[in-house]
Design a protein around this nucleic acid. Structure first.
Length: 457
RNA sequence: GGCCCGGUGGCAGAGUGGCUAUGCAGAGGACUGCAAAUCCUUGUACGUCGGUUCGAUUCCGGCCCGGGCCUCCA
């Protein structure tokens, strides 16, 4: 099946053709580790996790290399560490751990490679020297700048020309720049700032450089997909292109550029003062990570997404229905087939990751499970639902765990007491127990196979 | 100011030049000791003004509204 992807570089949906189907390579910009990630950071995390799953589905598990970097040298990190009175490494290690925990809770598989900027300083310095040698960069007052006018095609990804950028520039032009559009590849570090020895003195890399150096190190100078949020199109990705293409003019750098749309929160731009700034860690106290993931996938990745708590609640309701359907499946009963992803689901996902449309296919599979009349039919329908869920990174828990968590002996005891009361036709006591559990958010269901329960937030 | 994206039923959200997804919430019914779940029924939306067309929510243009980017925010 052909995978279609919207390519920011051409502004069109294109049939995806990997350079090497035996090693499909994707690079995604990961977090700068100075603070816990917020829900806006979670969107690309989840989107590109889905894309990685789709690539593995299309080309085979072992034939995809997904690289996602950790930016662990950055001025924001320096500032934050100073504010906290914390060592820089303590901050970056702690934040990285939180990031990994959040990603796991959101159902994201680890990338195949997770390069750190600080592990690639020699490669960055070599890249700078290469660019200087090709007259695309120059050293000035301890800084090294990329010479934007040396690259006539600069601006193609973001669709802007240099004049526009200069006209709109909000920031004063630094005196060491030959051209206002030039950007920093290397900058000097003060004694109390992290720094590495270089031909231009002790300093640290500019932000854009690391992605050019690390993608080349791990994926090569030509690779298939480069992803990130739309706000990275300019300047970050534009500058990566400039660095990488000027260093390696015979290579293509990334061939397909995939960008997810912006996220708003509760109808407004997320900001701490508005009280709509949600970190993933905070949201996880209130909601299952899987509900957050579904809430993010209910909107097409290129559309703007208004993230709301109500939206997460709705996602959780949908997951309840999916897991109810999965719970219909009796262990041990098999319809004798390996379960494929239903065609409507894979068609949707392969068409530029149309996850909202794909989800309608999951609902159809759930309907089929409820309508099934034999255990084999149930097994077939739930198998299809689970396979479809896996492609999206959903529905991989045991339904009992989804509904009940780790279980609770006190609840089991009350349910046993209620069953005894019902058998004795003591409905007053039975209802009393129902109400008591309901007050704690526990919903009971009396079915033909006995009484089950679930937590409702 | 320049560039870009979006405005779909109560809400969320796909999609399409003509047969109008899907979900959540709501209403009615079946079922149920009660409830939940499930099933059935129900709700005819596409910002606005023009244009193209036999026909536009879907194409084109103006306008209005919302959002984003314009040197380090995913």
């Amino acid at each position: 099946m052909t995978l279609n992807l919207h390519n920011t570089y051409t502004r069109q949906k294109e049939a995806f053709r990997p350079i090497d189907p035996g090693n499909v390579r994707m690079y995604v910009c990961g977090p700068t580790v100075y603070d816990d990630i917020h829900i806006g950071n979670a969107r690309p995390l989840v989107i590109f996790d889905v894309l990685a799953r789709v690539l593995r589905d299309a080309y085979g598990d072992g034939n995809v290399t997904y690289a996602r970097n950790i930016t662990d040298v950055d001025d924001k990190i320096i500032e934050r560490a100073a504010e906290n009175g914390e060592e820089i490494e303590a901050l970056t290690v702690r934040t990285t751990e939180n990031f990994h925990a959040a990603a796991a809770a959101l159902g994201c598989l680890p990338p195949d490679v997770e390069p750190r900027a600080t592990d690639h300083i020699p490669q960055m310095i070599a890249l700078i020297e290469h660019l200087i040698g090709k007259q695309h960069a120059y050293a000035e007052q301890g800084h090294v700048l990329f010479d934007v006018p040396s690259m006539p095609e600069y601006g193609k990804l973001s669709g802007r020309n240099r004049d526009e950028m200069i006209a709109g520039a909000r920031v004063e032009v630094a005196p060491y720049k030959r051209d206002p559009a030039d950007f920093v590849l290397w900058k000097p570090s003060a004694d109390d700032q992290p720094g590495w020895d270089s031909p231009w003195g002790r300093g640290r890399p500019g932000w854009h450089l690391e992605c050019s150096a690390m993608s080349e190190e791990h994926l090569g100078a030509s690779f298939d997909i480069h992803g990130g949020g739309v706000d990275l199109v300019f300047p970050h990705h534009e500058n990566e292109i400039a660095q990488s293409l000027c260093a390696h003019p015979d290579d293509s750098f990334a061939r397909t550029w995939v960008h997810n749309g912006y996220l708003m929160s509760e109808g407004e731009k997320m900001s701490k003062s508005l009280g709509n700034f949600y970190t993933v860690t905070d949201l996880l106290v209130e909601f299952p990570g899987e509900a957050l993931r579904l809430a993010l996938l209910k909107t097409h990745y290129r559309q703007p997404l208004d993230f709301t708590r109500d939206g997460v609640r709705e996602a959780r309701q949908e997951l309840n229905r999916f897991y109810r359907a999965l719970a219909l499946h009796e262990t041990g009963v098999s319809d004798g087939e390996a379960h494929a992803v239903p065609n409507d689901v894979s068609d949707a996902v392969y068409d530029d990751l149309n996850t909202p449309l794909a989800l309608s296919g999951l609902h159809a599979a759930a309907d089929a499970a409820f309508a099934a009349e034999t255990p084999e039919d149930v097994a077939a329908a739930t198998g299809a639902l689970k396979a479809a869920g896996e492609l999206l990174g959903l529905l991989q828990q045991d339904p009992e765990v989804w509904f009940q968590g780790d279980g609770d002996a006190a609840i089991d005891a009350l349910i046993a007491e209620r069953i005894a009361a019902r058998d004795a036709k003591d409905f007053a006591r039975a209802d009393e127990i129902r109400d008591q559990l309901a007050a704690d958010g526990i919903v009971l269901e009396d079915g033909p196979g006995g009484t089950t329960w679930r937590r409702e937030g």
